[in-house]
Simulated scan of single mutants.
Amino acid sequence: MPAPSITFDGLPSGARIAIEAETGPILRIENVCAGLNSSLSAFVHTTGGVVFLKGLRADHRWVWTQQREAHINPYVTPLAPRLLFHVIADGWDVLGFETIAGHHADYSPGSPDLPRVTGALRELASLPCPGIELRHAEQRLANYVADAADAEAFAGNALLHTDWNNHNVLITGDRAHLVDWGWATRGAAWLDPAHWIIWLIAAGHTPPAAEESVALLPAWTSAPPRAVNAFAHASANLWEEIAGSAPDDWTRHLLDAARLWQQHRSNRS
């Protein structure tokens, strides 16, 4: 479930004062619709520029994702926007990032953004996985595979983003930037292209066309077909769990895409 949304002015005074101590005087606030992983989402306009804020209550069950983003940021810039500060005050945990002016990636067939996203995938694959605490792909997906042994194929030492929602990909000029690193993971390098395939299918690609979009990525060419089949199966089960008994339209759409890819992989086996 999404975290409950709050505006900047709705924060406790202690949190607002602590943020303004980092940003300098705030001239204007632009609240935006919070994402699935944050309650606060706002641009604050200051004398020094514009800062993007994202935050959660300090007792929220996902607040650890804030710390994860803070820890990983030095290792993933400039692919990701630079973290300017991390404030924990008056019951709130807030990150302040440099603002990247761009648009959310368009994943639809024929979109000019697609080569930029594959460029980001290549750039990410070239980054070493930092020696910080990260979740492991084989552990994250262990409950969704048909056979527990299948999850071992997801193990690896590559740095993965794992959440390829197009709202997490900002296009500026000729490149793509990745935001929202709270679910960064250590695992097999081919998993990020595999995660993206489901979003491509949801955006209107057929499963073969979605796979063709990642076909030239070195990370993807190393993927064992049986392991990809296991991942497609696990992803369908994961999205079924996320959807629950009464999914909204957005979640149902992703579940349908995951099932479509799973069926495609099953037909190829």
Rank of each mutant, 00 (worst) to 15 (best):
G48C: 11
G49M: 10
G49D: 12
G49S: 13
G49N: 08
G49R: 11
G49A: 11
V51R: 09
V51D: 05
F52V: 12
F52S: 11
F52W: 11
F52M: 13
F52A: 13
L53I: 10
L53G: 11
K54A: 08
G55K: 12
L56E: 05
L56R: 15
R57A: 15
R57D: 10
R57S: 14
A58I: 04
A58C: 09
A58K: 08
A58P: 05
A58R: 08
A58Q: 14
D59Q: 09
D59S: 05
D59E: 13
D59H: 09
D59V: 05
H60A: 15
H60G: 04
H60T: 06
R61T: 14
R61H: 14
R61V: 13
R61E: 14
W62Y: 12
W62S: 13
V63T: 15
V63Y: 04
V63A: 15
W64R: 12
W64Q: 07
W64C: 04
T65N: 03
T65D: 04
T65R: 08
T65W: 01
T65F: 02
Q67V: 09
Q67P: 05
Q67F: 10
Q67H: 11
R68N: 07
E69S: 02
E69F: 00
E69P: 02
E69I: 01
A70E: 13
A70I: 05
A70P: 03
A70F: 06
A70M: 11
H71R: 15
H71Y: 08
H71D: 13
I72A: 01
I72W: 01
I72E: 00
I72M: 06
I72L: 06
N73G: 01
P74E: 03
P74T: 04
V76L: 03
V76P: 00
V76G: 01
T77D: 05
T77V: 15
L79T: 01
L79I: 11
L79Y: 00
A80C: 00
P81G: 02
P81D: 02
P81M: 02
P81C: 01
P81N: 04
R82A: 14
R82H: 04
L83D: 00
L84N: 02
L84Q: 12
F85D: 02
F85Y: 14
H86G: 04
H86F: 07
H86S: 11
V87I: 12
V87S: 02
V87M: 04
I88N: 09
A89G: 14
A89Q: 08
D90H: 04
G91A: 05
G91L: 11
G91Q: 08
G91N: 13
G91H: 07
W92D: 09
D93W: 06
D93A: 15
D93V: 07
D93R: 07
V94D: 05
V94A: 08
L95C: 04
G96Q: 12
G96S: 10
G96V: 14
G96R: 07
G96C: 12
G96I: 07
F97T: 02
E98N: 10
T99A: 09
G102D: 06
G102C: 09
G102Y: 06
G102S: 07
H103F: 05
A105Q: 01
A105K: 05
A105H: 04
D106C: 10
